[in-house]
Design a protein around this nucleic acid. Sequence first.
DNA 1: TGAACACTTCGGTGATGACCGAACTATCGA
DNA 2: TCGATAGTTCGGTCATCACCGAAGTGTTCA
Lengths: 230, 230
Amino acid sequence: MGTDFASVGRLLSSPARAAMLDALLDGRTATSSELAAAAAVKPSTASGHLAALVEGRMVVVATRGRTREYSIADRDIALALEALSRICPDPPVRSLRSARDMDALRAARTCYDHLAGRLGVDVLGALLQREWLVARGDEYVLSAAGDQSLVDIGVDVPKARMQRRHFARVCLDWTERRPHLAGALGAALCQSVLHAGWVRRRRSGRGLLITPLGVDQLQQAFGISTTAAS
Amino acid sequence: MGTDFASVGRLLSSPARAAMLDALLDGRTATSSELAAAAAVKPSTASGHLAALVEGRMVVVATRGRTREYSIADRDIALALEALSRICPDPPVRSLRSARDMDALRAARTCYDHLAGRLGVDVLGALLQREWLVARGDEYVLSAAGDQSLVDIGVDVPKARMQRRHFARVCLDWTERRPHLAGALGAALCQSVLHAGWVRRRRSGRGLLITPLGVDQLQQAFGISTTAAS
DNA sequence: TGAACACTTCGGTGATGACCGAACTATCGA
DNA sequence: TCGATAGTTCGGTCATCACCGAAGTGTTCA
């Protein structure tokens, strides 16, 4: 009845637009030229695609001087795309290199703006086990002990609380098939571990790289064992 | 990185294929002719579209005599489509009739194979409030009291437990923006209320219709107030 | 066995849209 | 003020694909 998949489907159906959305799925913004490069098309072509995505409310654009910063329009879009990526046929592993990339993604990556992959799942597991976070439906409640502990390791909890979005909620992981932490708190946690240098973004894509410092600190803060990636 | 939205997007991009998937989203099977009618195309055209959907692993087909029964391939596909429907621009309300249809969908409908809409959300709320169901991450655990009570009202809990799928889990409702119950238990519950005549399927689409009997029984079993729809 | 039915395959048509290069607009830095 | 940079608009080409009708395959039922 009525649900109009076709309009959204049409936007996803072009390889170029799909590549652009994929490039934006790490939650960062990108300029028109960057997205043109990501999609391997000329700027003029990219411009048309981006106009279509904006028109279709999938991305939003902010003009900054002579550049334009595009980003995923809202969290629902990101969630829907993550759900879709779960059913996309596994991109055929063409080479050793892309097989390694795949392993790296499984180990640690961002999902829109929060931690995902084995790292994301393990961190959520630790938070629940210590009862810093308590499940409640598809949301989580932060306990007093959890609040204090997260602040201690540098997470800006007060700022996360102030945001006009869900504070802490479930997001299903497509490689681990188990939940990881999304919402404002998930984003804040992700930002804090990036800022503290426990993990770094890989050169391209959504992959994350756990630093030697991160291995120590993650063990100390959450009691989880990781290995530093190269 | 790699996630290939385009292949799935291409399948969704045709209004005919989108309509077919939408028609299958209530979890029932449909024949080639039924889907051709749902999409308003000739059988020959429908045949091609359905072949593409099967090729793309979005639907599966079972040959029964001279007819072919199509259905959504698996639960991940259904979940992804539900997530997508959350971001589809609201289908423009063209008429009084479709406005009423929309209201009806909001009140009670199926989501793949379980209850959704206000009814689905209220039922889950009641289950949690009575502690028949306890949240645990994005899954639910059925308490002993809950097991007994659901069996008492006719839900085949043992059979649900035996199925090789998640037993009871969160599914986000796109009209209510709150969770309802999915998984084998959600499907069993849906089947039991249909079988007991508390609700009936509407002539077409995913809408459900609460019977006068259902109003009484839902009040008695779950303490929730509903109104019989016409 | 043959007629009715469900569905698929094939060939042809028309429309859509993805892409590029070239010309245009707006901003930044000197 | 002028050149360089970021992005958009426009016109044209080419490929893809949605659709149909007609003919073909296999199944059911009388």
